[in-house]
Computed example of a mutant assay.
Amino acid sequence: MQPTKHNWTKEEISEIYHKPFLDLVYEAATIHRENQDYSEVQISSLISIKTGGCSEDCAYCPQAARYHTDLEVQALMKVDQVVDAAQKAKAGGASRLCMGAAWREVRDNRDFDRVIDMVKAVNELDMEVCCTLGMLTEGQAQRLADAGLYAYNHNLDTSEDDYKRIISTRTYDDRLNTLHNVRKAKLTVCSGGIVGLGETDEDRVSMLRTLANLPKHPESVPINALVPVKGTPLENQPRIPIWDMVRMIATARIIMPKSVVRLSAGRNEMSTVEQAFCFMAGANSIFAGDKLLTTPNPDFSDDMKMFEILGLKTREAFKNGRPANTINKPVETTA
């Protein structure tokens, strides 16, 4: 078993990424089996707790206020609505609930107070609680940790060189700073990217290198396939070939062997056979449920059928231990 590295070069990762396809999948599958239970897949459920009206200009996102999409703007959900969604997700086999809000950044106001209450309430259900709320200060990250948050998602999306083409309303350093604040609060990190934005292979390699060379590898690395949405600048992007997705998953698995690699957006367009290649290449987590924030996603029953066909089993919550900040505490609601 090779030791975990944090000093990958672009050349080393590029050599892995461009290996003959079957050789790459075989190597990734071997490393996956050496480091994890290859038949175990975590099911996460992602809900949009506040939809649309975002001030950012992410070129792929229908939630940006400046784009004319068919998305209906919705205010922040109530705590009981989130708890109900969490209970249904848990009944469907999910061990993690991720709550996403279309914010540029977290603000210290009543909305954030309500999110804190959501985190406390879902934590009481013995589920891993994840949030993706935009940029975060160190103090805000600590508040979330104190409430029992398990993970924080903040994707890099693409390489640093390609970033300005996709987003101009914040910088790559803003993204990395949020990840730094999350680590300071001793939260687990969920960070990955999107394939199919019009990026080059070099951009993909560069993004993976940034993640793999962080002081600690992200515990979760989502690999998303772009789902083009009418009204966004990337509405005419072609669907990414499944082989490119598999290459990204396999490369991520090889260079971050202990991380959970999540097969994320775009799964609705993939056949069972295509998803099987992704699991073989080292993916060991999916988002389940009929929606992934605002885009279609396979429902729980379809995924359970796929798991039965492929001989996969669901991963329990807190597989790697339960951090002290997630120990159940009485739920204290704020005004």
Rank of each mutant, 00 (worst) to 15 (best):
A151D: 00
E202A: 14
A185Q: 12
T169K: 13
T210E: 15
V182D: 00
L149Q: 06
G148H: 09
N236G: 00
I194G: 01
T169C: 10
L156V: 15
L211C: 13
G193I: 09
N181K: 02
V229L: 12
L197V: 06
G193Q: 08
S159R: 06
S168M: 03
E199S: 07
A151P: 00
N177M: 08
E160T: 11
N153V: 08
G192M: 08
L226W: 01
L234C: 06
A212Y: 00
R170V: 06
S159A: 09
N181P: 07
H180A: 13
S168F: 05
E219L: 07
K216H: 15
A151G: 02
R175S: 12
V205C: 09
S159P: 03
K184C: 11
D173H: 12
Y150W: 10
P233W: 05
P233G: 12
K216M: 14
D157I: 10
V221T: 15
S220T: 15
P215I: 12
V182C: 07
I223L: 08
A147G: 11
T178H: 05
V205F: 03
Y172T: 10
T178Y: 01
S220E: 06
K230Y: 10
T200D: 12
D203P: 06
S220W: 00
T200C: 12
E202K: 08
E202Q: 11
V221R: 00
L156Y: 02
R204E: 11
P222A: 14
M207F: 10
H154W: 00
L149E: 02
A225K: 00
L226I: 03
D174A: 04
P218W: 02
K216E: 15
G148C: 13
T188R: 14
L187T: 03
N177L: 11
T210V: 15
N181G: 10
T158R: 01
L156R: 02
D173M: 02
T200R: 13
N224P: 12
D203R: 07
Y150T: 15
V229F: 15
H217V: 12
P228T: 10
N155F: 02
S159M: 07
G193N: 07
P233R: 07
M207P: 00
N236L: 02
D161K: 14
L149N: 06
I223Y: 01
Q237S: 14
I166E: 00
R183N: 10
L156P: 01
K230L: 09
L156M: 13
D201P: 05
E160C: 11
C190N: 08
Y172A: 09
R183G: 09
